[in-house]
Nucleic acid binder design. Structure first.
Lengths: 275, 275
DNA sequence: CTAGTAATGGAATATTTTTTCCAATATGAG
DNA sequence: CTCATATTGGAAAAAATATTCCATTACTAG
C-alpha cells in the first residue's frame, strides 16, 4: 500500500487542483492517465459515473477508484459529492442562512449588507449563465419595431419599471409608464403598433397581469419579465424573459432583474439610434 | 391510468419548459407541487436524486416519479439524462458563459448584458469592502428612532427610493415617499421627530437637494445616500452613505445602491421589531 | 350517503453504480 | 534470470438509487 493516509480530502475546487498537481509527480502510469484526464475535464466529475470517466480516461474503473483515494477522498462518491455541493452552493438558501445569522445575534446592519451583496452577486452570475441570447435578441427586435413602449410593474417590480422608463426617456424613446397613480385606467392608451413590457414576480400582481392580458388580446407584443415558468405572465406574454433572484429573508436584491432590464433598454436604444 | 401515452419526451430544456407549462393546467395537487418546485429549480435536476428533489418539493418519491412520467419521460433517470446531456455541452460556468455572451460583440443585447452583470458584480464587491459598519450602524440608529421616515429620490435614484418605500411598507414602518406627483410640495409633511432619507447621484437632482436642505435646517435627521464626497448632499446630511457604482455607457446598474438601501431598511425593520 | 374513480404514500423490488478483493501482470534490484 | 514488490483489470459484493405495486385515503357524481 502506498502512503495516502493522514491527508485531508480537498474541500474546494482550488484545493482539489492543488492536490492534483502535487500527487501527479509520484503517480504510476494508469493513475497518471486518470490525473491527466481529470485535469482537462474537471467539470465532468459532477455529472458522470466512474464507469464513464474511467472509460473516457482509458483505464479500469478500479484504477480510477484508486485515483480518487490518492486524491484524499474515501472513494468516488465522496469526490463527486464535493463537486456537486460546490455547484449547488452557487445557489444557497438565504432564508435559513438569515435565520442562522439572527439566531447567532449577528443581524447587524453590516452583516445584512454582506448577505445582500452575496445574494446580488449570485443572482447576477446566475442571470449570466441562464439567459438565452437569442431570446433577448428577439425581445429587442419586438421593442425596436414598437411605435411606443408601455411599461407596467407594480409593488416589488416598480423600481424596475421606473428605471426602464428613465432609461428610455433618456434615450428619447416614446414610453409610457403605467404607474397606477390616481387609479386611472390607461389601457386605452395602447394604440396599434405599441408594445408592452410587463414585470411581475411572485406573488404576482393582479393589475399587471390584467393589463398584460388585455394587451395580448388586443394584438400587442408583450415582453414579460418574470421569475418562473409557472408565472401567469409566461402564458400571456408574446415572449418572456426569466430572472430568478435570490431572496434574503423576505426581500430580493433586484440586481439581476435591473441588469436585465437595463441591457434590454440600452440595446433597444442603440438599435434605434442606428436607423 | 391517466392518459400520458403518445407524447414524446422533451429533448431540450426549452421543450421541457413548454411541456411543464402545458401540463401544469391539469395536474392534481401533489404533482402540481412537483411542477412548481421544478419550475423554480430546474437546474437541480442534473445534480440531485429523486429522493432529494421529492423531499425538497415536499412530496413522496413515488409522486415525483409520476410527475416525470406526466412530463413524457419513462422515469426520473431518463429525465435526468436529458439534463445531464445538455449541461455537458453548455455547463453553466460563469466565466465561459460570460465570454459566450460577449462573443456576440458590440452593442448586441447579450454583450450589453454581460457588461451590466460584470459592472454589477464589481460594484457589489466594492460596496462590501468600502462600507463602514459603524456609519451604517449609526444610520440605522437614527432611523429606528424616527417617528416617520420620509424618502426622496428622483430620476435615476427613484427606483431606490421606491424600493425603500416598498420595504418599509411591508414591514409596517410609517413611511412617506416624496415622489413629485402633481408637483405638490409635501415638505410640510415633515413633523418633529421625523427623519429623511435622501438619495441622489451626479448629476444631482435639485429638488432632492432642496428637500434635504430644508429638512436639515428644520432640525430633522437626514440620511443621505449618494456617490461622492463632493456631493452636495454630503454637506447637508446628518450622515451620508457613499456608494460608487460603475457605469456602462451612460447607465448605472444600481445593484450596489439597492443592496445598501435594502440592508438599511431590513436592519431598521429588525431592530424595530425587537422593541 | 354511496359507489366508483383518481390520487397518494410507503414498502417491496429492480436496477444501476460504487467499492472491494484477488489473481494476473508488470517492474526493477540484485 | 529470479524474486520481491508494485500495479493492474476484472469480477463479485455492497450500497445507493430508481421504479413498481398496492393498500389506503380523498374526491366526485349520482
Amino acid at each position: 500500500m502506498t502512503g495516502t493516509i493522514g491527508t485531508e480530502a480537498p474541500g474546494s475546487i482550488e484545493e482539489f487542483q492543488a492536490r492534483l498537481v502535487e500527487i501527479s509527480e509520484t503517480l504510476p502510469k494508469r493513475l497518471l492517465q486518470c490525473a491527466d484526464y481529470i485535469a482537462l475535464n474537471t467539470d465532468r466529475i459532477a455529472l458522470s459515473t466512474v464507469a464513464e470517466l474511467s472509460a473516457a480516461a482509458g483505464v479500469a474503473p478500479s484504477a480510477f477508484m484508486r485515483f480518487c483515494q490518492m486524491m484524499g477522498f474515501s472513494g468516488y462518491s465522496e469526490m463527486q459529492r464535493m463537486f456537486r455541493e460546490t455547484y449547488k452552493h452557487r445557489w444557497p438558501d438565504y432564508t435559513t442562512r438569515l435565520e442562522n445569522l439572527r439566531a447567532a445575534g449577528g443581524d447587524s446592519p453590516s452583516a445584512l449588507l454582506a448577505e445582500f451583496v452575496e445574494a446580488g452577486r449570485a443572482s447576477l452570475s446566475n442571470l449570466a449563465t441562464t439567459t438565452d441570447p437569442a431570446l433577448l435578441e428577439r425581445a429587442v427586435d419586438l421593442l425596436v419595431k414598437a411605435r411606443m413602449i408601455h411599461i407596467i410593474g407594480l409593488r416589488r417590480a416598480f423600481p424596475i419599471a421606473s428605471y426602464l422608463t428613465y432609461a428610455f426617456e433618456k434615450m428619447e424613446i416614446p414610453t409610457m409608464l403605467h404607474d397606477g397613480v390616481g387609479n386611472f385606467n390607461h389601457r386605452s392608451a395602447l394604440r396599434p403598433g405599441d408594445a408592452l413590457i410587463a414585470i411581475t414576480f411572485a406573488p404576482y400582481t393582479q393589475d399587471t397581469i390584467d393589463l398584460a392580458r388585455h394587451a395580448a388580446e388586443a394584438g400587442h407584443d408583450v415582453v414579460a419579465i418574470t421569475d418562473a415558468l409557472n408565472s401567469p405572465l409566461h402564458r400571456i406574454g408574446t415572449l418572456s424573459l426569466m430572472v430568478s433572484e435570490l431572496d434574503v429573508g423576505a426581500f430580493r436584491s433586484l440586481s439581476a432583474s435591473l441588469s436585465l432590464a437595463l441591457a434590454l433598454s440600452v440595446a433597444v436604444g442603440a438599435r434605434r439610434a442606428k436607423k
